[in-house]
Amino acid sequence: MQGLHLTADLYQCRCEPAWLTDARILGDWCVEAVQAVGLQPVNQLFHTFPGTDGAPGGVTATVLLAESHVCLHTWPEKKAVTVDVYVCNFGGDHSAKARGLMFALVNRFQPKWTEQRSLDRGGEDE
């Protein structure tokens, strides 16, 4: 059950608006980013929410990995994104791949600032 769980809250993103509102564009890119760092996607779900009060809706993009998952939620009205990357280290240490993926995801959105956290999951003697 050992693994690494990374989270990032991205604020005042300066990317093109489509990255925050178009599930297909964001989702396809997420799968490519996962593969680029050497993780294995096994399924995915991408959803654009309806807009409200004339503002576009956000996106949830989830990629299930053989190693665990990646999930993003966008708030275009706030130019904000939350990112969750979790990898299990059962068959090998995937921590460097998870960190590389998080780096790529954060850079995609060009935030003015971020709040990032890292949590080691599971115990040593499992």
Rank of each mutant, 00 (worst) to 15 (best):
Glu77Ile: 01
Val85Glu: 09
His69Arg: 09
Arg117Val: 05
Arg108Pro: 00
Arg108Cys: 06
Cys30Gln: 14
Ile25Lys: 15
Asn43Lys: 07
Arg121Leu: 13
Gly54Thr: 04
Leu105Arg: 07
Glu16Met: 08
Lys97Trp: 03
Cys13Asn: 14
His94Phe: 14
Val83Trp: 02
Arg117His: 12
Arg99Ser: 06
Val70Cys: 09
His5Thr: 10
Arg24Trp: 00
Cys88Pro: 01
Arg108Phe: 02
Val63Asn: 01
Thr21Leu: 00
Thr52Phe: 03
Arg24Ser: 12
Gly3Phe: 13
His69Val: 04
Arg24His: 07
Lys112Pro: 00
Phe90His: 15
Ala33Gly: 04
Trp29Phe: 08
Phe49Tyr: 14
Val106Lys: 12
Arg108Met: 06
Asp84Tyr: 12
Asp84Pro: 04
Asp125Met: 08
Gln110Tyr: 00
Cys71Leu: 14
Val37Ile: 08
Ile25Asn: 02
Asp22Phe: 03
Thr114Met: 09
Cys13Thr: 12
Phe103Met: 10
Gln116Tyr: 04
Ser68Ile: 01
Trp19Thr: 07
Ala36Gly: 09
Asp22Thr: 00
Cys71Thr: 14
Ala18Ile: 06
Cys71Phe: 01
Gly57Arg: 02
His94Lys: 13
Thr52Trp: 02
Gly57Phe: 01
Thr7Ile: 13
Gln35Leu: 13
Leu72Thr: 01
Val87Ser: 11
Gly51Ala: 02
Val34Pro: 01
Arg108Asn: 07
Trp19Asn: 06
Ala96Met: 11
Val42Tyr: 07
Gly38Phe: 07
His73Lys: 13
Val83Cys: 15
Thr7Trp: 03
